[in-house]
Design a protein around this nucleic acid. Structure first.
Lengths: 212, 212
DNA sequence: AGGTGTGAAGGGTTTCACAGCC
DNA sequence: GGCTGTGAAACCCTTCACACCT
């Protein structure tokens, strides 16, 4: 009951936020349908959260939302930094700025002096040299790492220096970091190649008759 | 031995491509180090591929590469389509165009007439209405779905009509599709919130002394 | 000695199934 | 009756450990 489950809890929360405007209560099978899981899994995921529903009304939406947010976020600031304002970085900045109500990307960093001091999606780009100072100031401990593969390990080390504890890593290589840092890897190329592999299989299994 | 393993196999292949220029043979522990897995897992992943290494030379790089590619891609074309040329879609197009040697994004689609007929990263944008015709012509069966959440289900259905068998889905909702379609979901918001959650935990566990 | 391939064990995650409750 | 919470079972994935090979 860790890793996987936590991810789904954030999905439940997102669905509940939309649901909040429409209804006050929700059953596990309804929320499960909305989020693409089984009712049993949803109930199990909720166990450690400690919020209890009632058998004939289900879960109270606002109450469950509050418990989920307390469980997932805890107290403290939820500022995020983007490191690497390239093609992908800019898109992620725009994406997250519009889509994460409880997290805010408050600073971006790059080594390209042409990008420094520009504003992207309402977020100032700083030189990477200022990482430590700015992140200490803004209490940033979570970073989106979107730099070229060859620089990722080096930049990640600087993030540790700047007291980061969580990294969302888009560089396709295994970062070597101390265990008190949480790293979530997103390997887009791997995902696409995986889809291609299974798609090919599906095609083959679908057309077994072909000039045998 | 499915899902997970296939993803890692694509990672091994990528590492081997870089290795090819430097050495002719590689041991499981070396390749494992490069890709962030244990040697045992790597060897197990390779089992269904059917390529055998030798105890005192390890794996022959080019031979393993050939077997991996045969296993992962099979024959047939490997053309990919992008559906949704928004902020994220454009970035993905650029990203994949530069990074996937064996897959090619050959067509993009959008409903915005201002985007239609433009060229993005060397790829022509077509109106979504032409999806079926163009994808049949170019033998495209894999799609990157990067449209707004509210349109994703509807667009996905059109993709099925156009004979897609694999979808890399960036819309944060569970697509309802027939079982002969493979869907890989990438939920960026979930990933970032997950990082935030664990990062908070790390901070708390690190500083248990605080004005008690 | 130091590799590989793999049966067996281990660990984690999902699903089942049912007691308890309204 | 139909829902929730949860022990138990099933399932999947990873790691261990060792026979075998050079």
């Amino acid at each position: 009951m860790r890793e996987r489950s936590i991810g789904r809890l954030t999905v439940y929360r997102r669905a509940l936020l939309e649901l909040e405007e429409q209804q006050t209560h929700v059953f596990s099978h309804q929320l499960a349908k909305l989020t693409g899981v089984t009712p049993a899994q949803l109930r199990r995921d909720l166990m450690p959260v400690g919020y209890e529903g009632s058998p004939n009304r289900g879960y109270e939406v606002t109450g469950l939302l509050a418990s989920l947010s307390a469980y997932l976020d805890g107290p403290g600031s939820h500022n995020v930094a983007l490191i690497g304002v390239g093609n992908l970085g800019r898109a992620l900045l725009t994406y997250f700025t519009a889509r994460t109500p409880n997290l805010t990307v408050v600073a971006a960093f790059d080594t390209d002096v042409d990008k420094v001091d520009r504003i992207v999606s309402g977020c100032r780009v700083h030189h990477l040299d200022r990482l430590e100072a700015i992140c200490a100031e803004a209490e940033i401990h979570v970073g989106i790492l979107a730099v070229p593969k060859d620089h990722a390990q080096e930049v990640a080390r600087r993030m540790i220096q700047a007291d980061f504890t969580g990294i969302l890593n888009f560089a396709p290589l295994p970062l070597e970091l101390p265990p008190h840092i949480y790293v979530e890897n997103v390997d887009l190329t791997m995902s696409l190649e995986k889809v291609n592999c299974f798609a090919q299989q599906k095609i083959r299994s679908r057309q077994p008759i072909k000039e045998a």
